[in-house]
């Protein structure tokens, strides 16, 4: 794949894999409104993923469609960060994952609006408005749970603690993204880290939560190295399409 296709695929895989996780909350959320909210957030991400995967396939020029890329790649070919593939856990874990990822996505898409690539700029221009609502949702719940009862505080803190080792990977740069960023096409994730810290720290402080100091960190998602949960996620996401090749709606 050419670098631009790989970059589009990274953004698309993040959105697609988180969509799959959020869809698991359908009919299982703590209240009806949250069932609707989490699946709507997933729907926004799916829309972003579809455009990005289609674009990656088009740039690759080998005739792969969005469906081919979503359903027919194996684990080592997925380039999402490990944060988005982590299991939902309880509602506190899911909200922690949403907070850490949505703020990151808001900042990346925000800067990507200025990309010299018209398709990426267009995707980002739409997505940034949707993600602003995702951030608002995650921030409100983080405050409410963190600054709520002793039980909700402890579970929200446990969620933040469990997800924090996956944060460092979000801001990892490599030659591919650095070159595309220098050319004005991509956003180097390292460039948004300071603003991410500021925004997330402010929410954690409001929520009476403590910023963790993890003893380990995840790495490797962008090059196809994933946690043990990824294979199970893909098995569920892909089995229908693989059992019935070529099936469409």
């Amino acid at each position: 794949m050419i670098p631009l296709a790989t970059y589009a695929l990274r953004l698309g895989d993040d959105a697609l894999v988180l969509t799959q996780r959020l869809s698991e909350w359908s009919s299982r959320a703590p209240e009806l409104e949250e069932d609707v909210a989490l699946t709507n957030i997933g729907l926004d991400l799916l829309g972003q993923a579809r455009v990005l995967l289609s674009y990656a396939g088009e740039l690759e020029g080998e005739g792969r469609t969005e469906d081919d890329l979503a359903y027919l790649r194996d684990e080592r070919e997925f380039t999402n960060v490990q944060l988005v593939e982590q299991p939902n856990g309880d509602f506190g874990v899911t909200i922690a994952r949403q907070l850490l990822f949505s703020v990151y996505q808001l900042l990346v898409y925000g800067d990507l609006r200025a990309s010299s690539d018209p398709t990426l700029a267009a995707v980002a221009g739409k997505a940034v408005k949707e993600v602003a609502y995702h951030v608002d949702h995650a921030e409100q719940w983080t405050r409410r749970l963190g600054d709520g009862t002793e039980e909700s505080h402890d579970r929200m803190q446990a969620g933040i603690d469990a997800m924090w080792p996956f944060v460092a990977e979000l801001f990892e740069s490599d030659d591919l993204v650095a070159e595309l960023a220098a050319a004005g096409v991509a956003v180097d994730p390292a460039s948004v880290q300071a603003e991410w810290d500021r925004r997330v720290d402010a929410v954690l402080a409001d929520a009476t939560l403590t910023r963790p100091t993890p003893t380990w960190r995840a790495r490797g998602g962008r090059s196809g190295v994933h946690s043990e949960h990824m294979g199970f996620l893909l098995a569920e996401m892909q089995h229908l399409h693989r059992s019935h090749p070529g099936a469409t709606w």
Binding site: V36, A37, D44
Partner: peptide
């Protein structure tokens, strides 16, 4: 606001 997310993507409750 009850929820920022409603019956369709474009609506809030």
């Amino acid at each position: 606001v009850v929820s920022r997310f409603g019956s369709t993507a474009c609506k809030a409750l």
